[in-house]
Each structure stands twice: as structure tokens, then as C-alpha cells.
Amino acid sequence: MTALVPYTPTALTRYEMNERVVPPVTDIYETADSFVVKLDLPGATKESIKLQVEPRKLVVQSSITADESMNLLYSEIGRKRYYREFNIGDGINVEGIHASFEDGVLTITLPKTDEMKAREIKIQ
């Protein structure tokens, strides 16, 4: 049998694509009293982000809810999930870790313990 019109796939739904695990783009800087980790998580929401502090490890992950109702004509973003982990040493005040999410950027502040903070030593 010959097809009258050759089948050309034009659009696929997000559901048909495989979900990729993507490490978020990250900036880290250190100040006198804390470490600050910034991660690009476009498309995530405050509720979808999971932030875990394990012994010596900080894990950031988030799923993305994709719009399944429309045809996908072209895709670079696709279906994905964010995952990245960071090693953290001693000297972090785990209880004091806090985070905020704005414009798709997650900012995590990891305060240093008092012992870790830089101290100026006076010369006697």
C-alpha cells in the first residue's frame, strides 16, 4: 500500500518527550559571615522546589509543570526536572540556612558558624 500523503510528524506533545534532568546554572559567593548560592530555576515555583540539607550535602531539586494542552512546534526547554547537589563542609550553621525565590532565581544563604567567621587578630 502506498500512502497518498507521506506522513510527516509536525508536532509532538510534551508528554511524548523524555524528561531530562538538568543541573541549574549556579553562582556561589562567600562573604565574611555566609555563603550565598544562587540558582536559575526558570519555570519552577516556590512550592515545587525541594531544598534538602543532608550531612555535608545540600540538594536542590524541582519538577516543572509543563503545559500539555498545546502542540509543541519547536523545543529547547522541553520536559525537564532540575537537580543539583553541593558539598558543604563543617562550619555551616545548618539551622540558619534560609532561601528565597524571585524571578526564577533561588537564593540560598548558608550562614557560617562563629568558629568559621574570619577574625581579625590584634597584634599585641
Partner: peptide, 8 residues
Amino acid sequence: PAIDILEN
């Protein structure tokens, strides 16, 4: 920026 194009 990375883009997706959707259509209905």
C-alpha cells in the same frame, strides 16, 4: 534565551 514554541 532557550525557547519553546507551542501552538493550538
